[in-house]
Design a protein around this nucleic acid. Structure first.
Length: 194
DNA sequence: GTCCTGATCCTCT
DNA sequence: GAGGATCAGGACG
């Protein structure tokens, strides 16, 4: 399955954020480092868009959220709760502060390494949350603002059709919590929460 | 400068 | 189901 993986390019990300959030479901997050090869299927995402009170970019550009305003296809990684990182993909046109948060993966490759980093053995516990998948994949904040269109850390297109997408309200936020901007693969066992 | 909040996770009961 | 860990960013003065 590793033979025909290629990175999604700028034109995929440079579209409406909600559409990108849905289209990312079933795609593969791939980390091809000197250490090894790791990959997981994206099973859960959330969209953060302009005019959304929960979006970091809602109150204009700051030093922290600057990558969100950059060109589509970049990473936006931020530190939260003093302990964790979350991984976003920047979408929409440059100058528009929107992004998609990756919330959960189904582990596919490099699982022993993931277990090690997470100190967990159950497949379900490895990537079932935004901070978990960052830890499992070993993604460093060095990638903040970097393009995901190269051949080290990237997202590859779907390799198979997905059965259905459920859209619902987002998790862990207060403002804008009623907006249906969370999407997940309907029958996946690997999402962070039902 | 101070104060408060947060796109979370883990470890208990 | 509840509470703690733990700190950077942002708001305010």
């Amino acid at each position: 399955m590793t033979s025909n993986l290629y990175p999604l390019q700028f034109s995929f990300y440079n579209r409406d954020t909600v559409i990108v959030a849905k289209d990312l479901l079933g795609c593969l997050l791939v980390y091809c480092s000197p250490r090894g090869f790791e990959a997981g299927k994206i099973v859960e995402t959330e969209a953060y868009i302009q005019g959304d009170p929960a979006c970091h970019a809602n109150r204009g550009m700051t030093k922290r959220n600057k990558p969100m305003f950059g060109p589509a296809g970049c990473a936006y990684i931020y530190f939260i709760y003093g302990m964790y990182f979350c991984f976003n993909v920047v979408t929409a046109e440059e100058g528009v502060g929107e992004a998609v948060l990756l919330r959960a993966l189904e582990p596919l490759e490099g699982i022993p390494e993931m277990c090690k980093r997470r100190n967990k053995n159950k497949l379900k516990d490895l990537c079932s949350g935004p901070a978990k998948l960052v830890q499992a994949m070993g993604i460093s904040k060095e990638y903040n603002g970097k393009f995901l269109t190269g051949n080290t850390l990237f997202i590859a297109p779907r390799t198979e059709n997905i059965n259905g997408i459920t859209s619902t309200t987002r998790i862990g936020i207060k403002t804008g919590a009623d907006l249906p901007l969370r999407f997940y693969i309907t029958n996946s066992k690997y999402i962070s929460k039902k």
